[in-house]
């Protein structure tokens, strides 16, 4: 006769999927808030995005406050 017993173990390694997801969020978020000058929206709107700079304006105050060079 076999008995089933539930035990809790601690796994120390960081899953590769989590590493990939978090590294992507890190790179994308820092670029958008800290450095985007129209690049993201230029994918959809072309050169006009560099003139409008919607993301730059949206993140403008946080960009200055967090210490990123802004303009």
């Amino acid at each position: 006769m076999s008995l089933s017993k539930e035990i809790t173990i601690s796994k120390s390694s960081v899953p590769k999927v989590a590493l990939l997801v978090l590294a992507t969020i890190f790179a994308f978020g820092v670029f958008e808030v800290g450095f985007d000058q129209g690049q993201l929206f230029s994918i959809a709107f072309g050169d006009q995005a560099y003139a409008d700079m919607y993301i730059h304006e949206l993140t403008h105050d946080m960009r200055h406050a967090a210490g990123f060079p802004c303009h």
């Binding site: 978090l22 590294a23 969020i25 890190f26 790179a27 994308f28 978020g29 820092v30 958008e32 808030v33 800290g34 949206l58 993140t59 105050d61 946080m62 960009r63 967090a66």
Partner: peptide, 11 residues
């Protein structure tokens, strides 16, 4: 942008 930067640095 605080929420986006927070999730990013938090990652």
């Amino acid at each position: 942008s605080g929420a986006i930067l927070g999730m990013s640095i938090g990652s």
